[in-house]
Structures are given as structure tokens and as C-alpha cells.
Design a protein around this nucleic acid. Structure first.
Lengths: 217, 217
DNA sequence: AGAGACCTTGACTGGTTGGTCAGGTCTGCT
DNA sequence: AGCAGACCTGACCAACCAGTCAAGGTCTCT
């Protein structure tokens, strides 16, 4: 009974294992986001996905290994979104698309963003290597692109890193500080507000580096 | 011996108590910032300020009470800085001064900023009331000022809240994500970099809302 | 149908943590 | 000097938590 209890029509062995792992990862992501690594308990994660605690340890050897998988998954999603920063496109297009994508991520992957923020804030003990390799490389390529734009006189002469940090910080703020944002807003942001916020961020950033934001949409 | 061991020339009873409390709060701020509430241990805080763990409980009844005091202290510092958003001044001046002040805070009170970020990210269980009262009020007054600027045609018509979030997020990024920033920078930011980052943020924000950043300094 | 791999789970354990407390020390006051 | 009250601290405890385990259940393949 127990094994076929899940609502999904039981697929192959491997499929079911994957499903269970994903359910645990989803639950873990939320719990880690709400309580931090230290504050989260395996029991809480187990409760959140309706499994006995011992089951978690069957799928993930330790709390730390589970946490690492959660963080890695977030990073992959982030990386995927990062590709929307098209190095070939016009600056207006590339930046606008990238900012919009990151705002979407903040809305749809709030917990993931929080876990990532937590991890970095505490000195990135688990994913330091990612920072030094993948993130470093990605950043350098985009910095190079921005420098080229500057050299071509298309945008104002600013240090590219400060611009990237501004975009990262602002977009992630809507996930990491969602509670504060929603408190000040007396409730969750509406679709219109998300759209307006995105457009405002795009507008300030583009105009801020000397571009014409043009007509949105 | 123990009581007079502190380097300070022992003052009055009340002074010494205050000194000890501040030493504990300082240590707690760092430990909470590095490990989060759940990950921090009273023992680690005790070690960080060179006191026996039992002493902490003499000055602060519980871990949670100590944490609350740490967060409250941060909030007070934040509020003080918030006053540099002069509602009487010209938009360029008010915003420039406010951003610069917040950047300084990020540099000098990194741990405090992290603790605050942690608290809000985890749903502000301790300081929800501050968000709903003091922060709400402060925000509303500044939003009103920005709306006035817009009505007077001095800055572009944008939702003031999105602008404030952008400033908060960007400036705090340099504290909360200091580890990531420093990794990508291959070391701590120099004074010149701090200055350049501040100037860049001011420039993008001001230009972004249709103002002339003018000549810095 | 039967064997063997795979999965599930309640009960348990060793270690850690927040918090307590009794007994001691020091300070300021009379 | 002597006393009262503030301060200090090592040792202790109950609660909790990550991780283990053995016994039993289920699925797949032949």
C-alpha cells in the first residue's frame, strides 16, 4: 500500500524514485528557506512531504547532503535564467530580458532564492566552489560584454560589476525580502504590481546607464 | 579578579553592566550573522566574547531575548541612517545622501545587516511589529515625498516603493552578499571601489528617475 | 510462484544544546 | 569591619536532533 499511495500513477522504479526525491527536495527547499540550515530539522522536512523521517535518510545520506542538493538545484535554475542575458543582443534587449527573467524567478522560486541567499550570507560553506568557478566565469563574460558596450559608446561608462550587483540585488529582493514587501503592501503583489515593478526596474536601470528604455511590451 | 579583568578602567556598576551587555551583543551579532538564529549556539557566543556561557544567561534570560535585543539594536541604527533621507532637501541631495549613508552602513555594520536580512527572510517572527509600525510609517512618509516630487514634475513618474526597494536591495547587497562580492573581486573592496560603487549606484538611480546626477563630491 | 533487490518505518541512540542552580566572589555602603 | 546585594561560574539536566537499524513489506524478473 505505502509504496503505491502517492497520487501519481506509479511509473517505473526509477521514475518513482525520482518523484520521491523531488518531493523531498521541494519540501526541504521550503523548510530550509523558512528556518535556515541550522534551524531546519529533518523531522520538519519529513512532515512537510508526509514521509517518515527515516525515509529521508534512505534517499539522502545526511542533512548536509540533502541541503547541498537543494542548493545545487537552485543554482542550476539560476544559471539557466542567466542565459537570458544574451551576449549577442542589443544592450536594451539583453538587460530587459535578463531583468524580467530574474523578476519571474523571484516570484516563482521564492524559497529557492532564499536558500541561496542564506547560503551566500553565511559564507557559502557548501557552494564556495561554484562561486569561484561557474559564477566567476559567467560574470566575467558578461562584464566583458558590458565593457564592449561602453567602449562602443552605447552605454555610460560604469563599472559593470556594480551594475550586475544592482540587478541581482534588486530582483532578488522581491524573493528574499518578500515578507517585508508584502507587509508594506498589505498583501501579496498583484500581477499588475509585478509587471509594474519589473518595468520600473528595467526603466531605472536602462535610463540609469544612458539607454532609452523605449516602449515596454 | 574576574569582575575587574576587562581592559576598561572599571567604571560604576551601571557602566560596567552596560559594557558587558554591549560586549555580549557585539559577539552575538557576529555569531547570529554567520550562523543564523538556529545555527548559532550560546556557547559560540560565549566563546566569542570570552565569557562563560552561564554569564550570558545572567545578562539575557534566553537565546531568543538576546536575539531580539540584537535585532532591535540593528533596527535602531537603520532608523538613524534613514533620517538622512531628508524630506526637505532637493531630490538629488536627499537620495544621494541616503544612498551614501546606506552604503556606509553596509560596509561598517555588515553583521547587523545580515542579521536583519535573516530575520526578514525567515518571516520576521521577532520584529513583525516593527515592520508594521515604525517601518510602515517611515516608508509612507518617504513615499509621500517622492510622490510630491513626481507631482511637481521633478522626477519621472514611477511607483515610489519600487524605487525604495531598489535602493534598499542594492545597498544591502554589499553587506548581505559581501562574501559573493569579495569572491568575485578576489578580495575585499578597496576604499576606491566602495566610493566608485556608491557613485555608480547614485548615478544609475538618479539618472534612472530622470535627474541629473551632477558632479559627485 | 519464488527469489532477491528495493523500499518503508517505528523504535532507538549518542551527542549536543538551551537553560538552571548552588555556592562562591567582589563591591559599595554604613 | 561587616553586611547586603550584585555578579560570576562549573557542573548539571531535560529536551531535542541527526542518524541508525532491524524487521517487515512490495515490486520485478524469471
Amino acid at each position: 500500500m505505502a509504496q503505491t499511495e502517492s497520487a501519481e500513477k506509479s511509473g517505473t522504479r526509477a521514475e518513482m524514485r525520482e518523484e520521491t526525491e523531488r518531493a523531498i527536495l521541494d519540501a526541504a527547499e521550503v523548510v530550509f528557506a523558512e528556518a535556515g540550515f541550522g534551524g531546519a530539522t529533518m523531522q520538519a522536512i519529513a512532515d512537510a512531504c508526509g514521509l517518515p523521517k527515516a525515509n529521508l535518510h534512505y534517499y539522502f545520506a545526511s542533512k548536509e547532503k540533502l541541503y547541498r542538493r537543494v542548493v545545487e538545484r537552485i543554482f542550476m535554475i539560476w544559471l539557466e535564467a542567466a542565459d537570458s542575458f544574451d551576449t549577442e543582443a542589443e544592450p536594451e534587449i539583453a538587460l530587459r530580458r535578463y531583468i524580467a527573467r530574474k523578476m519571474l524567478l523571484s516570484r516563482d522560486y521564492r524559497s529557492g532564492s532564499k536558500v541561496w541567499a542564506n547560503e551566500v550570507m553565511h559564507g557559502a560553506p557548501i557552494i564556495q566552489d561554484y562561486l569561484e568557478t561557474t559564477l566567476q566565469t559567467w560574470t566575467e563574460t558578461r562584464v566583458a560584454v558590458i565593457r564592449r558596450w561602453i567602449a562602443e559608446g552605447r552605454i555610460a561608462a560604469i563599472e559593470p560589476k556594480w551594475l550586475l550587483y544592482m540587478i541581482w540585488a534588486t530582483t532578488q529582493h522581491y524573493a528574499d525580502f518578500a515578507h517585508q514587501v508584502e507587509t508594506l503592501n498589505h498583501g501579496p503583489l498583484s500581477d499588475a504590481q509585478w509587471q509594474d515593478a519589473t518595468e520600473t526596474v528595467c526603466g531605472i536601470v536602462l535610463r540609469g546607464i544612458g539607454l532609452d528604455p523605449g516602449t515596454p511590451r
